[in-house]
Design a protein around this nucleic acid. Structure first.
Lengths: 257, 257
DNA sequence: ATGGAAGTTGACGCAGCGTCAAGGTCAAGC
DNA sequence: GCTTGACCTTGACGCTGCGTCAACTTCCAT
């Protein structure tokens, strides 16, 4: 009593529809497990067989998948709990946001490539195009926080030329004063050093574009001055940088803790 | 012999750097497991401690992660096996391709929304804007394959107005002939029916924009004519659609197997 | 001493299948 | 009737980058 292969066959094996629809048998089993597509018949041996209606359903699933919908959403649409248009509208919003993020990321990558190719270092030393940045390394340090990197850039570009010059001048002054203080043998907890730390703090707060400069961030920065030779060099070597770090730490303990 | 909390502390607990860098302790452990960031010291109790150099390293990792690089790539960059610029260039290419796919997907979703909102059905019945499509339903059927959906659309838009009219006329003729043949009681394997199947095949091949029309695709389409009432209606009900399907199947067996 | 905050390792979860692994079925050729 | 090879089954791990318990241990302050 076997079913002879008749002329107008109306069902196919799993591989056959898979190929017909341009997908794989694994995917079909997955869809079944997800409750999206049941075989029209299952043989006594467990083999799955699919008919035209299944193929139709499968095509719908694949169409929606191609548009990027998740299997769960697709399930809702298929069983009519959600209109296709509504689901797609929701999905479209997600896609648009995704695109925005991608665009921003692409821009960021491009800028970082630019910076590293010119500067040779991973962390951009040369974000300030129009200036002779070899003279102004310090400001770079301030943007090492990762959010600060992105936000700080917007902040910087929002400034006028005059404001930028002021800010750079300010930073140079600050660095010089640090070096002087370190060289003069002042203690990190002296009034002099603490005043410098205070200036450093407010200068940073201004540069962070509304981003709060917290205890961890401030002291962390101090540590990095010591850890990174490119920076410590600007502060008179490890010793000088250590002095800056200590002073900043004390300031943080007193005012930010 | 405990280490007293001295003035210039140079290391922090896992939570402290995590907060300072704007991430979580779990992430730090993950990076360690991934070989990206080792604590500067591990206490006898298993506690992890990190110093300034670690913080520096962490910032680099987070910067790259923000740009979308995978941890593996980041690892290569950090240990100098890949230049940052090179890695970012590669990554940029990926991002650009990703953006392309996203754009296409967005366009497709928009069109599908349009179509379903006007047509009410998920499968777009109205892809042919300028025409009185209520008269031309058949062509829609041909684009059910999912790649065909996207590619077929580009194909269609690449045609001139004249070519479109020809194609539509052709499709209408074909449908009428099918209906006539079915009504006249012709057998599916008759010369007449097989000639219609041949026309159907070539008409499809033309419509698929270079996409091959294989055995599975062709027979599957026939099955769908029967399974979907919207289509079978156009072929004189289930009986007529069954006739078309059978004829297509025989044609496929003879010429596409 | 004790309670609460913070640390540890271990392991599951997620999205959508790809990809073995180990074994049953089926049609065909000898 | 037996072997071969193609195709089928279920089961389970893998991938990405952590989030999120769970079950304990340690540290610090009262």
């Amino acid at each position: 009593m076997k079913t002879p292969p008749e002329h107008g066959r109306r069902e196919w094996s799993i591989q056959e529809i898979a190929r017909a629809a341009g997908t794989t048998s694994r995917t079909l089993r997955h869809y079944q497990a997800a409750g999206l597509l049941q075989p029209s018949r299952v043989g006594h041996n467990g083999y799955r067989y699919y008919d035209g209606a299944c193929l139709l359903q499968l095509q719908r699933i694949l169409l929606l998948r191609d548009l990027g919908l998740g299997l769960e959403e697709i399930g809702k649409v298929l069983q009519g709990r959600t209109g296709p248009a509504a689901a797609l509208h929701t999905h479209l919003a997600v896609l648009l946001e995704e695109r925005d993020r991608l665009e921003r990321r692409i821009a960021a990558v491009r800028k970082t490539i630019d910076a590293t190719e010119r500067g040779g270092q991973l962390m951009p030393e040369e974000m300030f195009d129009g200036f002779d940045h070899t003279q102004y390394k310090e400001e770079v340090e301030q943007r090492w926080g990762r959010e600060a990197y992105a936000k700080g850039d917007r902040w910087w570009r929002s400034l006028s030329t005059r404001e930028r010059q002021d800010w750079l001048e300010h930073s140079r002054q600050l660095q010089n004063d640090w070096v002087d203080a370190a060289a003069s043998g002042t203690a990190p907890d002296s009034n002099e050093a603490q005043e410098l730390a205070r200036r450093q703090f407010h200068w940073l707060a201004g540069a962070n574009g509304g981003q709060e400069v917290g205890y961890g961030y401030f002291t962390g920065l101090g540590e990095m001055y010591v850890a990174d030779p490119r920076f410590s060099a600007n502060y008179g070597g490890e010793a000088g940088a250590g002095f800056v770090r200590d002073a900043m730490k004390i300031y943080a303990d007193r005012h930010l803790a």
